[in-house]
Structure formats: structure tokens, C-alpha cells
Amino acid sequence: MKMDRLLSITMLLLDKKRIGAKELAEKFEVSPRTIYRDIDTLNLAGIPIRSTSGVGGGFEIMENYKMDKKVFSAADLSAILTSLTGFSNMMQGKELASALAKVKSFIPADRAKEIETKINQFDLDLRPWLGNRNIQRYIETTKTALQENRLLTFDYSDQHGNSTSRMIEPYQLVLKNSQWYLQGYCLNRNDFRLFKLNRMTNLQIKKEQFSPRQYQKPQLDFTNMLDTLQTNIKLRIHREVMDMVLDYCSFEHFIPDGNEHYLVDFPFIENDYYYNVLFSFGNKCECLEPSHVRTEMKRKIKEIAALYE
């Protein structure tokens, strides 16, 4: 988010005497051109930033400058505080607490009530309802390793249940669809890999440090690929599982079928994951078409029933 980056740049410049465009670009993972545009935006907002060229040059805030608390609107401050508070539920530590305290210091007394009202309109809680209780501890361990460029070791179970021991250079924590991932360079595979935190066990931070290498962010947007692979199947569902089905498609795909049921055009890919999604709806869901999906459902149901005979 641009506003978060602008605030962070301002804090860095207030904290440091001078910092270069390249260092800022690497820190925020944007281009130097974007940093120059950000600096122009901050100058237009009334923060006097000057640049110096040559060896040791960079950006700095003019001496004796104190930030005007009115530079951020009530909407700006409430958005930043809401985001930081949401992450502080999951990611603890001095950095977030300090950031929250600094942002709150920008709130003028005469606008405190207004901003508090806006913050209370949203509540971001990233903690899972149930599940692996090691995740929060693993996030903190990983965060330390990221900050100190230290190696991590862990045992990892893949989607087929095969377990391997790994040692990696950690590069990025990723939150995607309520799931946490770690992007790192695996020294066992000599390549970058994306690891799901809830598949890890015995996570340990090592004393050894590493020199960071160039890397690209993992690809996390598969919208175009999914649009190519997905087809719609016809389901008849009971209203009791409507909430579960709405996790996968929107209500515009629902057509009432009597008082208790709906007909649903459901996005589907023919793999085990999507068949298991259908099974998760239990006897409150029937696949009406296509016929080959119905046939495969029957076959899988017989396999499951055979386990209990």
C-alpha cells in the first residue's frame, strides 16, 4: 500500500540522517523511479526532503523539521492503524508496537474521537479459528531469521505426506488466503522454494548467517491459469451448506430450487482437491452434471465406504 510506504519512508528519514534511493528501493521492493515519485509526493505534502548526489549522497529531511500532525487525514491514520493492529494480532514484537505508538503520536487531540470511530469500523484478526498452534511461534522465529540473515532448518511434509529435512535461506514471509508461507532458497534442492508453515515441524534457527542472493518473489496470482483450467459444474445444495459453498463462488451463481435448496454453477477443476471440496459438503450437496463427475464421485464414495466394511 502506497500510504504505508510513504509513512515508512518518512519514519526512516526522521530516524536516519540520510538514506539513498537504491537502499529505499531494495527495502520496499520497488523501483528507484517509484521512490523518486514517493519523495515528490512527500515534498508536496509539506515534508521538506532534499537530495544530495555523489558518494554518500541520498535523501534527508531538512534539519529542525518537525512533522505537522495534520499531514495525514483521519482516513489515512485510521487505515494505517487498522492494518497495523490487524497484523499485531498475529505478528508480535517491538517493531509493530513501536510503529503503532509512532502512528498514534500523529493523532491530534481534537481528532482522536473521529479516528477512533473509523478504526472501530473494522476489525482485522488474522489468527485462525482452529489449527496448528505452532504457526505464531514459527512466524516469530522466521521473522528473526529474516532480520538477521540466519539459516533455518525444519522437517517438511509435502501434499502426499512425504517428509524431508530442509535447510534454507529465508527471504520472505507470505500471507495468502489466510495461509502463511515462507519463500526461501533450499540448500537441499539448490533452488528457491515456497513452504507452507503448517506443514513444518521442528523449526530451528541456526547460528550460521548467509549472504543474501538475488531472488524473485513467488508467483501467487493464478487467476489467469485458473480461468483456463476451471469449468462450471451443476450442484444442488441444501441451504445449510450455503455458507461453505459461498467460500468458492458468489451468490449470483445460486438459483432457488424450492424452499430448502439451491442450484449452483460451481467452479471446478478435475483434481483431488476439488473432489474433496465437494465431499466436504457431505450429504447436503449433489452433483447433477456433468455425468463423468457424478461417476467419479460414486467411485470415490465406494472406496471410502470400503474402508468401513
Rank of each mutant, 00 (worst) to 15 (best):
F210Q: 06
L7S: 08
N198M: 09
I19K: 02
L84E: 03
E303Y: 15
S88V: 08
G184V: 02
A21K: 11
V174H: 01
D257F: 15
E26W: 07
G20Y: 04
D38I: 08
I135V: 11
S280A: 05
N259L: 14
D272V: 06
V241L: 07
G58H: 00
T10E: 07
M62W: 11
V264D: 02
D265N: 11
L278N: 01
D38M: 09
M90D: 00
M167V: 07
L100R: 01
L13P: 04
L187C: 07
T117V: 12
T52P: 04
F279P: 00
D243K: 15
I80K: 04
F266Q: 06
I237R: 03
E169L: 05
G282Y: 03
M62H: 09
V293R: 04
I168P: 01
L194H: 05
P170N: 02
H292I: 12
L229N: 09
T144Y: 11
F28T: 01
E114N: 11
S163E: 14
M225C: 13
E260H: 14
T41E: 14
T10H: 00
E148F: 14
F254E: 03
P290I: 01
L42R: 02
I168N: 00
L246H: 09
K69N: 04
T142H: 07
K234M: 15
A112R: 12
L42N: 05
I107D: 05
L14Y: 10
T164Y: 09
P267N: 03
Q219H: 15
E296H: 13
Q121F: 13
A101D: 12
A75F: 15
A109L: 13
T231L: 15
I139N: 03
D257P: 11
E114Q: 09
Q219G: 14
H160Y: 15
K234Q: 13
D158G: 06
I237Q: 03
D76C: 07
L84W: 01
I19Q: 05
A79G: 12
N134P: 09
I9Q: 00
I139T: 05
D158W: 03
P48D: 07
T141Y: 13
E252F: 10
D247E: 10
G46P: 04
M167Y: 07
I135F: 06
S105I: 10
V71L: 02
D155N: 08
S83H: 08
G93E: 06
G56N: 00
L81A: 01
I301S: 15
D40P: 12
L194Y: 08
K207F: 15
G54M: 06
K143E: 09
L246D: 10
S73A: 00
L14T: 07
R133G: 09
F279A: 01
F222N: 11
K207A: 15
S291H: 12
V264C: 07
L100V: 02
Q172S: 06
H253M: 12
Q183C: 09
A45E: 01
M167S: 08
I35L: 08
N64V: 11
